[in-house]
Nucleic acid binder design. Structure first.
Lengths: 343, 343
DNA sequence: TCTTAGCACTCGAACCATTAGAGTGCTAAC
DNA sequence: GTTAGCACTCTAATGGTTCGAGTGCTAAGA
C-alpha cells in the first residue's frame, strides 16, 4: 500500500520525467512547490518506491525513471483528466468543417490532426468496407477486351477493378447483365457479394445471356473485394522527433512494422470498446517494447466501429493523449454516424 | 587531362568506395589485380587526382573518397554498362506477369520491385490523370441529399466524389443530366472538363432540367479533378539501411521531403527524356546534398510520359541502377503503351 | 624519366586516468 | 517523523598515451 506522500512523489516523478526525458533526482523534485519536503525525505520515499518496483535507476547514482509498473500505476490511478485547452478543441472541431464530406476524408483528416496535436504517430482504422452494402453496380467497357467493374456502396465508397471481357461479346449482353445484377444484388454486403452472386444470378444469366460462363467468371473475380484493413497513418516521422528513440535499428524495426498493414491487428487490440493503454512490453510486438499505445474505438452508425491508436514512447504525455482521444472518438462517432444516416 | 593510369585508379577508387563505404588507401588498392603498381605509385597518382579535385581526404592521414567532381567524372566517363544478371531480368519481368492489369498497379509494382532490387528509395511518377479523357460519367444518388459523381476515363481510371444534391430533386432530372453529360463530354480530357462543362452543357440543362442551377453548381465542384501528381513511393525506409546516413536530423529532413508530394518536381527534373543523374549538391533541395538521384522517363502511349527516380546516397551503385532503370523504363513504356492501346 | 622502397610524419580511434558534479544511502540530530 | 550532513558511487567530460593506417617526400633503382 502506498502512503499519500509516496503517491504524490510517484506522480510528480512521472510527470517530470514525461516532460524532461531526464532521470529525476531528489533535489530537483524538492524545488517544486507541490513537494514541500527536503531532498532527504524525498529520497527516502523514492527509495521505497524503487523497492516496490515503481521506479528504476539507470545506474547506481542516477536519478530515477518510472518503471513499467510505475507507468501502469500512474495510468491506472493518477490520470485526473483535465479539460482540453480551448485551442485544441477548436482545432479538433475544424476536422468537421466540411459539411458534406466522405467518411474516408474525415478519418484521414482526424489522423493528421491527431499526429499534429500530439507529435506522436496516429493510426486510424476505418470502417470495414466489406460490411457496406451494394448501392449500384455498373460495368463500363473500355475497349474490345476489357471493362471496368464499379461498385458504389451505401456509404458512397466506390470500388473499381479492370477485368477482361471475352472478345466479340455483344454490348447488349453486358447491359442485360448489369440490370440483372442491380436487381438482385442491391443491398447485399460486399462481404457476401461473391456468394450471393452465384446463388442469385448465375442461373438467370444462363437463361438470358449468351456465353455467360466466360463473362461471369472474369467478372466474379473482379468483384471480390480484398479483405484488407482500412488503415490511415499520420505522423509516422514523429518517431524521429522523440529523444527516446536514438537507436537507428530500433527506429527501423518500428517503422517497418507500421509500413505493413498486416501488423495492425497486433498493434491495436480490436473490438474492445473504451480506452485501452498498453505500456512497453504489454504490447504484443517485441519491436514495440519501448512504446506505449493508446487505443480507443469509435462508432460508425449502429453496427460498425473503427479504432484510433496513438503510438508514442513509454514516456508519453498520457494525460493529454487520453483527453484528446476521448474527445475525438466522441466527435468522430457523432459525425460519422450522422454522415451514414444521411444516406 | 588525365593519364591512363590516373583514370584507372580513379575508377577503382570510386568502385571500391561504393562497395565498402570506407575511405580507400593506397595499400588496399595495390592489392587489387587490376592495379599492378606499388602503393607509392598509387599514392602519387591519388595525390594528383586530389590536386585536380577528383578525390578528397576526410582528414590529413586518411584514405581518399571521391569528391562530387570525382563522382561526376566517373558517371560521365566510366559507366561501362554491364548486362543485367539473369536473376534481375527475371524479377523485373515478373512485374508484367498479370496480363490484364491496371496502369496504376503496374507502376506500383515497378516501384516496389525497384526499391527491392536496389535497396534505395524508388519514386515513380504516373501518367497525368488530367490528360485522360472521359469514357463515362455517372451519378449515383445515395440518399435524399447527396450523390456520388463517377468519372471513368479511357484508361480505366475511376475518379469519384460525393456531392450534395438539392433536397426534393426529381430523380429523373438526374438521369436526364447524366445522359446529356455523356452525350456531350465523352472524349474530353479531365483537364478541360470543367470548362467544357460550362460551354457545352449549361445551356442545354437550362432547357431541359428544373432547378438546374443548384444541381449544376454542386456537380461542377465535384467534378474538378485536383492537379495532383500521381506519385508512387517504395522503399522509403531503405534510407535507414545506408551506413552513409547516421545523422537522425538529416534522415528526418530527407524523409520529410519525400512525405510531401509538392516537393516531387524539385526532386525529379520533369519532362527531359533520357537518363539523368544528379549528384549531391547538383540536386535542387539542400536536404538532398548527400544524395544522388537518377531519373529516367518512360512513355505511356504516344503523348504521355511518366518518370522513374531512384534516390540513394552519393555512394550509390550507379552502374547497377543505371542498367536497371534503362531496362525498366523500356519495359514499362512497352507494356503501358500496350495497355493503353488496348482501350 | 618513371617506379618504388624507405622513412618520418600526421591523425583518428581506442584506451586509461583524472576530475567535477549530480545523485544516492545512511546516520544522527532535531 | 523529518532533515542536515557526509561519505560514497557513478557518469560524463577532459586530457594524455599508444597503435595503426595512411600520407608525402626523398633517394635509389630500372
Amino acid at each position: 500500500m502506498l502512503t499519500e506522500r509516496q503517491l504524490l512523489i510517484l506522480k510528480v516523478t512521472v510527470d517530470d520525467y514525461i516532460e524532461s526525458a531526464q532521470p529525476v533526482g531528489s533535489n530537483q523534485l524538492s524545488k517544486k512547490s507541490e513537494l514541500p519536503f527536503s531532498p532527504a525525505t524525498i529520497r527516502n520515499a523514492m527509495a521505497d518506491l524503487e523497492k516496490m518496483g515503481f521506479l528504476e535507476k539507470t545506474h547506481t547514482s542516477s536519478g530515477r525513471i518510472p518503471s513499467q509498473k510505475g507507468y501502469r500505476y500512474y495510468v491506472d490511478h493518477m490520470l485526473t483528466p483535465r479539460p482540453l485547452p480551448k485551442q485544441d478543441i477548436l482545432q479538433l472541431q475544424s476536422i468537421f468543417d466540411d459539411k458534406i464530406a466522405e467518411t474516408e476524408q474525415v478519418i484521414k483528416r482526424s489522423a493528421m490532426m491527431l499526429s499534429e496535436l500530439t507529435n506522436y504517430t496516429a493510426i486510424l482504422l476505418g470502417p470495414d468496407v466489406r460490411k457496406h452494402t451494394v448501392k449500384k453496380l455498373s460495368i463500363v467497357p473500355l475497349g474490345s477486351d476489357s471493362a471496368v467493374a464499379i461498385i458504389v456502396t451505401n456509404s458512397g465508397h466506390v470500388e473499381n477493378r479492370i477485368f477482361p471481357i471475352p472478345p466479340g461479346l455483344d454490348p447488349s449482353d453486358i447491359e442485360k447483365m448489369v440490370n440483372i445484377l442491380n436487381e438482385r444484388l442491391a443491398g447485399v454486403s460486399l462481404n457476401d457479394l461473391h456468394i450471393r452472386l452465384e446463388q442469385e444470378t448465375l442461373s438467370i444469366f444462363r437463361q438470358h445471356i449468351n456465353r455467360y460462363a466466360e463473362l461471369f467468371s472474369t467478372f466474379r473475380e473482379a468483384v471480390v473485394v480484398p479483405h484488407e484493413e482500412n488503415v490511415y497513418y499520420a505522423g509516422k516521422l514523429n518517431i524521429l522527433k522523440q529523444p527516446d528513440f536514438h537507436d537507428i535499428h530500433k527506429i527501423r524495426s518500428l517503422m517497418d512494422i507500421m509500413e505493413e498493414s498486416k501488423h495492425i491487428p497486433m498493434i491495436m487490440p480490436h473490438g474492445s470498446l473504451g480506452l485501452q493503454i498498453r505500456i512497453g512490453s504489454e504490447n504484443t510486438l517485441s519491436a514495440m517494447e519501448d512504446c506505449s499505445v493508446i487505443t480507443v474505438a469509435y462508432a460508425i452508425g449502429e453496427e460498425q466501429t473503427g479504432s484510433i491508436a496513438i503510438v508514442g514512447p513509454k514516456r508519453m504525455d498520457y494525460k493529454r493523449v487520453v483527453t484528446l482521444l476521448d474527445t475525438l472518438s466522441g466527435d468522430l462517432s457523432k459525425e460519422l454516424t450522422r454522415l451514414i444516416r444521411g444516406k
